[in-house]
């Protein structure tokens, strides 16, 4: 059910997410010290290539990691297999990528 390729991509996406999560949390804690609101955050992120790439990469890593992780859960607990499992995995990946990408676009552009 999990092949070496999926194992590789799950480990790789975890490797990518780990530092991104730490930077994200540290930035949030630092940024809200003096009480930022949404408009102030957007003022800093809009037009920023760095934050666009940062959160774009984060969304891609989450889409890959979540799709593979949920694939395992669905297979082991709900016994979904074969084509259904492939459709589920790809759907989760596309869904997270779609919603995440939309959020990145909204914050950066």
């Amino acid at each position: 059910m999990l092949t070496v390729r999926m194992h590789f991509f799950q480990r790789l996406s975890a490797l990518v997410m780990a530092p991104l999560v730490l930077v994200h949390l540290a930035t949030m804690i630092y940024a809200i010290q003096s009480g930022l609101d949404a408009s102030e955050i957007l003022a800093r992120t809009q037009g920023s290539l760095f934050w666009g790439m940062f959160y774009g990469l984060f969304v891609i890593a989450v889409a890959v990691h979540a799709a593979i992780g949920l694939r395992v859960v669905v297979y082991e607990w709900l016994k979904v297999a074969c084509a259904g499992l492939e459709v589920f995995t790809i759907s989760v990946g596309i869904l997270v990528l779609g919603y995440g990408g939309r959020a990145v676009v909204a914050v950066v552009f």
Partner: peptide, 9 residues
Amino acid sequence: VSGSGGCHN
């Protein structure tokens, strides 16, 4: 050991 029931599970 890399198949669908292999070690990566």
